[in-house]
Simulated scan of single mutants.
Amino acid sequence: MPRPNREEQFETGEICIVHAVQRCVRRAFLAGVDAATGKDYSYRKEWIRRRMEALASVFGIDVLSYAIMSNHLHVILRNRPDVVASWSDAEVAIRWLRVFPGRRMEEHLAEPTEHEVKVLAANSERIAEIRLRMSDISWFMRSLAEPISRLANKQDECTGRFWEGRFKAQRIVDEAGLLACSMYVDLNPVRAAMTSDPEKAPHTSAFDRIQASQGKRIDSAAFDLKPVPTEEAAKQIRETPVDELREQRKAKKRNPTGKRIKRDAWLAPLTLSPDKLSGDAEVNRDGVRASDKGFLQVSVREYLRLLRWTAKQNIDGMAAAIPSSLASTLTQLGIDASMWRDLVWNWQKYFGKSSCVGSPDSMRLDAKRCGKHHHQGQASASACFI
């Protein structure tokens, strides 16, 4: 069955949440240990994580959860056209030029200047087009995939695809589906038997949140959103040797803003703020993510407790009784607590072929939005909901 058109799943001008899966070509372990050659490419997972972190600082898109595996990537994204609408034309221009600097004579400089920002900001038609792209999940995934592919091909001295093709997308239509999907994503390394403990699974959002709760900080990969003064750029080109400029650029790439941040600061906060109005964009002012808006009505502590419990239920038919406090959280969302383990561990059975994730009622409503009678997987998922 062909995948649905993107416009059926999400629209640029509409806030929605999407679970995206991007696989390496032929499912080869291009970010892990290559079984054929024995080479270990695991360090490429950090390439992918840092690129996501950098893009989170410029796009109007929140990264909610992620897991980077040896041959594929899971990420849950929420597009924020309301956040992009709050940016000035100059802000839109500098953000775009940071991701797409364009071809230029001085590739060793590759820093947007004040003049370039002003010229682009003055082009109202172009800025309107870019605004749409800055909250477009497809453009975010493109901006993530292409540089990683070029970098890996350059390192391997080869050409061709790194990623299999266009990413798979599942629209998440309610909080019950979002909690289950986030848990599924965070437990990918546990499911793959890479570890039995989420605390020992780097390159996942759960690991980042656990590390941040312990006070761990990292060098920020966020883009510097200040353009270079035009005169300063010209002076650099005239007076600084090309090799030195290239070294300066490499050094700045490692930490463009010079900031050290909490390990999860670039991710969207997990918990929704009850004191905020539902229509409040909660724009982030630190330049590390699109907004400060949470996405679940549970605390980080409750989420991690449920995550750890679920991680231990790895044998079919051997699940322990879920603690009453955790069961209460699930019941409030309409999830059958006795089916929680099965829902998360056997995710593919329920939602593997579906383009939509959520409770049966929410999936039914979304099917109507798309002009369909129902979504695939809707009937099987009903077993896990009250």
Rank of each mutant, 00 (worst) to 15 (best):
D243F: 05
E247W: 14
V242W: 09
P256E: 12
K226W: 11
A234V: 11
I218L: 06
E231L: 13
D197P: 03
Q248M: 15
A212M: 03
D208A: 09
T257S: 10
I218Y: 01
E244Y: 12
S213T: 05
A201E: 00
A221W: 04
I237T: 02
V242E: 13
T257C: 11
R191M: 00
R217Y: 02
R254A: 14
P198T: 04
R254K: 13
K216F: 06
A212H: 05
F207G: 04
V242H: 10
L245V: 00
K235G: 07
R209L: 06
A206Y: 01
T230S: 14
L225N: 08
K200R: 15
K253H: 13
R254Q: 15
D224Y: 10
V228N: 09
R209N: 08
S213V: 00
G215A: 09
I237W: 02
P229Q: 12
T230Q: 15
D208W: 01
T195M: 09
A251I: 10
V228W: 14
F223P: 06
Q236F: 12
I210T: 00
P241S: 01
K250Q: 14
A206H: 02
E247M: 15
E231W: 11
P227I: 07
E199P: 00
T257D: 06
E239G: 04
M194Q: 07
P227Q: 04
F207M: 03
Q236S: 10
F223W: 14
D208T: 00
A234H: 08
S205V: 10
S213R: 10
M194R: 05
N255P: 07
D197A: 04
A221T: 04
K226P: 02
G215N: 08
S196P: 01
F223D: 08
T240Q: 06
R246L: 11
E231Y: 11
Q248H: 15
A233M: 07
A221D: 07
E231R: 13
Q211R: 10
A222Y: 02
E244G: 07
D208K: 05
P241D: 14
V228C: 13
E199G: 12
A251C: 11
F223A: 15
A193F: 04
